[in-house]
């Protein structure tokens, strides 16, 4: 999963402090792997350097200064490009797809379009494997079948998610 793109996407709904970003990330995508503060601040420094975010304000307090970050137009374009680019089909990529779908819903983009684009990419891989299987020997057939079954499982997840988009939208934007 791209932490940078995910944090950028979370900033689309409005400026946030690094701490708020970490909390939002952990709540929606962290599950059993919460972000370290160091990851958040190093990622934000990189995004700042590339002009994808800007500092919206600084709060001085008793402790260290707290920067508030806002996404730039270039940042929004970058998130859009990432969401629209299908993931290379491989085993167990659901976490990335899940993140993309949730971010699309959070930022009011077309999540169904992302699922359709990904389905097309998966089927493209499945066609290549099917063709290889037809022309290959038994070993080829077994190797291709293994990959095909994994891709098929991803596709079933895509279909189920597409059927549940309305409910998911309610849950993530609540």
């Amino acid at each position: 999963m791209s932490i940078g793109h995910t944090l950028l996407g979370l900033l689309e709904s409005g400026p946030r402090h690094g701490y708020d970003l970490k909390r939002a990330f952990d709540e929606k995508f962290g599950h059993d792997r919460p972000l370290h503060y160091g990851q958040v601040y190093s990622t934000m420094s990189r995004l700042l350097k590339h002009g994808l975010v800007e500092v919206d304000g600084i709060e001085a307090g008793g402790g260290p200064e707290r920067k508030r970050y806002a996404i730039t137009d270039a940042g929004i374009t970058d998130v859009q490009r990432w969401l629209a680019t299908p993931e290379k089909p491989e085993e167990y990529l659901q976490s990335t797809l899940y993140t993309k779908v949730v971010l699309a819903l959070l930022t009011r983009r077309d999540a169904a379009e992302i699922l359709d684009t990904q389905r097309a990419e998966h089927l493209r891989s499945m066609r290549i494997l099917t063709d290889r299987k037809r022309k290959g020997d038994l070993a080829d057939q077994l190797i291709c079948d293994h990959a095909l079954f994994h891709l098929e499982a991803d596709l079933r997840w895509l279909e189920l998610t597409a059927a549940r988009l309305d409910k998911l939208s309610e849950a993530v934007t609540r």
């Binding site: 998966h122 089927l123 099917t130």
Partner: peptide, 8 residues
């Protein structure tokens, strides 16, 4: 999907 993979 495995059947659709036989399509163009």
């Amino acid at each position: 999907a495995r059947v659709a993979a036989y399509s163009d």
